[in-house]
């Protein structure tokens, strides 16, 4: 019974901490989005191409940038960022490369 209670307190605390940690993100997230509407930086495209080559063929074949639209790449690369444990900066570079090449 005691372990059950300890367990609960522990899980509860973990969940609360995780939720609180996520909160500031709401603000940060919306800021990020605004900066993005500008033109792609050529160096970012080059970095993205390299990161794409190094990371995106590890589990499955590399897909052609032409397979998806810009908006689809946005979603899919976020999806892959989580699956492949990529850094957010790498994911942004990869998106820039894919969008510049589709």
């Amino acid at each position: 019974m005691k372990t059950m209670k300890n367990n609960r307190i522990w899980i509860g605390t973990t969940l609360v901490v995780a939720m609180l940690a996520a909160a500031p993100l709401a603000v940060a997230g919306s800021d990020d989005n605004k900066n993005k509407a500008s033109k792609p930086d050529p160096m970012q495209v080059v970095r993205g191409a390299k990161a794409w080559k190094n990371n995106c063929g590890r589990c499955h074949n590399l897909r052609s940038p032409k397979e998806l639209t810009d908006e689809e790449w946005d979603v899919s690369v976020t999806h892959m960022r989580v699956r492949a444990n990529l850094l957010p900066l790498e994911a942004e570079d990869i998106k820039a490369f894919l969008k510049a090449s589709n």
Binding site: A37, P42, V45, E71, V75, H79, A100
Partner: peptide
């Protein structure tokens, strides 16, 4: 290189909700 096919890539502001 950046221009290759980039036409339209950044046209319009990105929408808040996207799906795939």
């Amino acid at each position: 290189l950046a221009k290759v096919g980039a036409a339209g890539a950044y046209s319009g502001a990105p929408s808040d909700a996207k799906w795939h």
